[in-house]
Write a protein that binds this DNA or RNA. Structure first.
Length: 283
DNA sequence: CTTACGGCCTGGGTGC
DNA sequence: TGCACCCAGGCCGTAA
């Protein structure tokens, strides 16, 4: 699933292929995941892609009018990959995978394609001030948070730490895989309440979140099911998973059996020995 | 304000 | 071989 490291890997790939390119043509398949498909069909042709940005799990393509005499509007294509979204550049004659719903013809002869089996992703064209509004409720990127900001965000809440790390308003970019992996590294049980974390636990968690995300970016993300980068290549961090989908197997640290439980409505994987359950919360 | 939960969507796996 | 069923989870809307 695309979480921060996967989206960052896609963004880095797109930065090599897109800036400076002009969009010549737009073709759409199913559009129920696009906020305003007509706007995309009408506005994108002729626009130049200026930059590729990432905010949490969102990709932003910054666009500009190719005509300099047109009034300058801030125009951004906001893309979320959901669970199964893939965004790839390829020659237009390359075979079209099933569930490919957006085709952008580019002025270098390549095509930018969006494929999304389950259509949990989303696409939205933001004009002028809409960008700030769309992103304002999202928390900071965990890789850009200071330890003090992290403590303030997590330590002030009575929700389970698993839910807090997953909450994009607390910090944006963590999903189920990296949340479980970070909690294992920090030796903190997913059901612990944020406000009850001790100083050293909070420090370990901050460290663990940053380390796991940084290492996952280095290995180009985790390809568990559908994830591929902008060149269609799989990541390798799934080979380094220590708990995610390893229930029934042995903990790499202590040899106990990894367990799975539903926490915050999500399947959660943890070592019952390294990550001690809180007393009051039922396991 | 908080947390909980159903719904969206498809494919892969399982059990009968 | 087919088919019903469940599960994966990011995010949003609604309910309590």
């Amino acid at each position: 699933m695309p979480e921060l490291p996967e989206v960052e890997t896609v963004a880095r790939g797109l930065r090599e292929a897109l800036p400076g390119r002009r969009i010549l043509d737009v073709r759409l398949g199913k559009t129920d995941f696009i906020e305003n498909p007509a706007a995309i069909e009408e506005q994108l042709p002729g626009k130049q892609i200026r930059a590729v940005k990432r905010h949490g799990k969102f990709l932003l393509l910054e666009l500009a009018s190719a005509n300099t005499d047109e009034a300058a509007h801030e125009l951004v294509l906001l893309i979320h990959l959901g669970m199964t979204g893939q965004i790839v550049t390829c020659p237009p004659e390359a075979p079209v995978p099933l569930h490919t719903h957006v085709f952008l013809a580019l002025d270098d002869g390549k095509e930018l394609r969006y494929t999304d089996i389950r259509r949990f992703g989303s696409m939205q064209l933001l004009v002028d001030g809409a960008r700030a509004k769309a992103l304002q409720s999202l928390g900071a990127d965990p890789l850009e948070m200071t330890e003090a900001q992290f403590k303030a965000a997590v330590g002030a809440r009575r929700a389970r730490v698993k839910a807090l790390l997953l909450d994009q308003h607390v910090m944006s970019g963590m999903g189920n895989i990296y949340t479980d992996e970070a909690l294992w590294r920090a030796r903190i049980h997913p059901m612990r309440i944020g406000a009850t974390l001790k100083r050293d636990e909070m420090a370990r968690l901050y460290r663990a979140v940053r380390d796991v995300l940084t290492e996952a970016i280095r290995l180009r993300g985790s390809s568990v099911s559908d994830y591929v980068d902008s060149k269609g290549q799989r990541g390798e961090f799934q080979l380094r998973h220590r708990v995610y989908q390893r229930d029934g197997k042995k903990c790499f640290r202590c040899g106990a059996t990894i367990r799975r439980a539903i926490v915050a409505g999500r399947s959660s994987h943890f070592c019952p020995k390294c990550q001690r359950a809180p007393r009051k919360v039922k396991a």
